[in-house]
Design a protein around this nucleic acid. Sequence first.
DNA 1: CTCGTTGCAAATCATTTGCAATGGA
DNA 2: TCCATTGCAAATGATTTGCAACGAG
Lengths: 152, 152
Amino acid sequence: MAEREAFVDQIVQDLRVSGHRVTPQRVAIIREFVGRADHPSAEAIHQRVVAEFPMIAISTVYSTIRLLVEMGVAAEVSPGFTGARFDPNTSNHCHVVCTHCGSIADVPAGPELPTAEACAETLGSGFRVERLTLDIHGVCARCAAGGSDAPD
Amino acid sequence: MAEREAFVDQIVQDLRVSGHRVTPQRVAIIREFVGRADHPSAEAIHQRVVAEFPMIAISTVYSTIRLLVEMGVAAEVSPGFTGARFDPNTSNHCHVVCTHCGSIADVPAGPELPTAEACAETLGSGFRVERLTLDIHGVCARCAAGGSDAPD
DNA sequence: CTCGTTGCAAATCATTTGCAATGGA
DNA sequence: TCCATTGCAAATGATTTGCAACGAG
């Protein structure tokens, strides 16, 4: 797909423009990552790139992914968490998650939200829907004001 | 709040009924956990309970939380993940996440989903909304059929 | 030539597991 | 009494960090 190559070139350009260096390892990671339909872990990306660069370190993969996320061409699937968090409230509601300090606040689920039943219907019979979570990710007031880390 | 004590008693009853033992440590964890409005980590719960049981182990907290999740009185905030997963698709879409094998599939975001702009409006000026994620958690067809672990 | 990047190993967290001792039912 | 549960320490897995060597600009 020439489409993908163009995208890779675009990202490489962006790297250069923003003052970052274009190394063969980075290009290999970008090439393996963009245009995919799946959601790989750092480990999975590393395993793919190892075929081309047997010496590449997992820490290089982590730093490159971080770069891609900062550039806006990649996203973390569930950003804002370090470790598991547990919720005593099992009713249907949304979370407002601060990607800086990890604080989580509740927002009652509005009626405009799809129900688990509606999703089950949309998805068909293959997948058994158990829960629906709408998370709003961003930066809370305290972090935006430069506040130091303070948990939920 | 007598409300909470009643809830604690209810859970304790459920424990007994399902053949689990009611230990002082478990009661303390349940008491610290239920009725809260926040979303503590295992570490946070442990720190609270240590005041009452200085010898309690973090592994006990983990196993008790797992029990509460199985009983349906607690929920993991972002269930189904082990480690970070990254998404090359930064457009607005939903994820179907299998809580068994961790596989993630994409579903295009329907028009019935609230937009980031609408959420920002609802939340007011304190929080800077960056991204909205709707995740559908459940069990995929392969896992429901007893299939072994296979990634995305 | 310079300084951002890499590779590596060790450090740091989060979570799980194995096992002997304990104490609810 | 008996076995689920506890505490502890060690194992595991994910991610970060410190630092010397390297190499893109």
